[in-house]
Design a protein around this nucleic acid. Structure first.
Lengths: 223, 223
DNA sequence: CGAAGTTTGTCACCAAGGTTACAATTCAGA
DNA sequence: TCTGAATTGTAACCTTGGTGACAAACTTCG
């Protein structure tokens, strides 16, 4: 299957496009651009296309976010089907999220001006964009709440459960990256991961974590 | 000035409504409802009006969010001018944010069905909603990044700086609430606050914090 | 196969925040 | 004015996660 066909399939299944008919997905495909990127590449780095909607079609990207003090905080990893919406129009300031490919990836990029053009014919596009941003808001808020209120072990379990649920049970990331995502040291993450493995909740590999029992992880997160 | 006039003034200044002309603010006012609530009251608790746009006109509300384990996490406080958009349409699940008045407050509530009605005449409304949600997303992401990456002292300074910048220098909240918002114990927060006061960055009162030097707080947050 | 680089598992030491508790202060209402 | 509730300031003790370092295991590429 070609990347474009794959993107079309992902768009038809996207929650934020439900109820808008196939013509909107087609418009996004028509006005968007398929981008191939090698591992380690920065997405969204060229010219005015820094913002708009980005859909991960194949591969995986890490999501980084700027924090005070010039810190770049790794806060998540996204696989095929995940879309990100961002724009410079509202509120100004620099780009919110930076994407970095952790492996060879294919993205569908629909820049701001393309969105404007689509909206000229399909005003409902903004409703879909609002839905997309709202989904991201939900995720970000949950993450913030977890980071503020959950103790380390529960926090780790919760994030593993979320990532396994949204991106499949096989998580391809090393423990250093995972540690950054939950705000802990690698040592601590390793310690708890070994415990989870002992309990049969997951299997550890080299640069990989296979989640085997999401319900069990959720139970820990809620404890 | 009547609450309705005050709401109109706040709407005309709202970032997320810029570029949409006065008729959109008027429509929100016309289809919205002014609600008076006493201290301690739950906002958004009646019937189908649980979601939509809520604008704080007078007073102050605390924002809570559900975390795993039935925990309700206090993550912020909003004063006049702050708007919240949320909806049950996308992604399902329970309401994202719960509002509780910390003092007698006046809110403008524009429920989902009213938004739909306004959008029938002004399709650009969804663009404004997308902008509003995007503003919230920015805030939530920054909060998550801070919670994950900043050490306690920097985290506290950063949140104080943000709240002083968006809601005025006089923060009316006790140290217990502040501690929950930054994910620390009251003891630790009290310790750092006394240090900040010593450095002349703020003044502590009974249930109140007067920020005097936001630049200084930002310097600490970035250190 | 062999070498280089990455990732994991582990250690001892240490700093730092959490817990629990209590006294002092401030405020609100009778 | 007086009383009770809420809030702040503070203490001792203790758990727990961070730091820095290093060996072992794994992967990859020549």
């Amino acid at each position: 299957m070609s990347p474009r066909e794959r993107a079309a399939e992902l768009l038809t299944k996207a929650v934020w496009l439900q109820g808008h008919g196939p013509e909107m997905a087609e418009a996004l495909l028509a006005h968007g651009r398929i981008v191939n990127l090698p591992a380690g590449a920065w997405a969204q780095s060229e010219g005015d296309e820094q913002t708009g909607i980005t859909l991960v079609v194949e591969g995986a990207v890490q999501m980084m976010c700027a924090a005070p003090g010039g810190r770049e905080v790794l806060f998540g990893q996204a696989g095929p089907g995940v879309a990100l919406g961002q724009t410079l129009r509202f509120g100004g300031g620099p780009r919110l999220v930076t994407l970095i490919c952790v492996e060879e990836s294919v993205l569908l990029v629909v820049p701001d001006h393309a969105l404007t053009r689509i909206a000229a014919e399909q005003p409902a596009l903004w409703q879909a964009v609002a839905a997309l941003v709202y989904l991201q808001l939900r995720g970000a808020l949950m993450m913030a709440a977890e980071a503020l209120a959950l103790p380390p072990r529960q926090r780790l379990a919760s994030r593993l459960e979320v990532m396994a649920r949204t991106g499949g049970p096989a998580l391809r990331m090393n423990q250093q990256a995972l540690a950054e995502m939950v705000g802990l040291s690698r040592k601590t993450v390793n310690f708890y991961l070994l415990g989870f493995q002992q309990a049969g909740l997951l299997t550890l590999g080299y640069g990989e974590i296979e989640v085997r029992d999401t319900a069990g992880l959720r139970r820990i997160a809620e404890s």
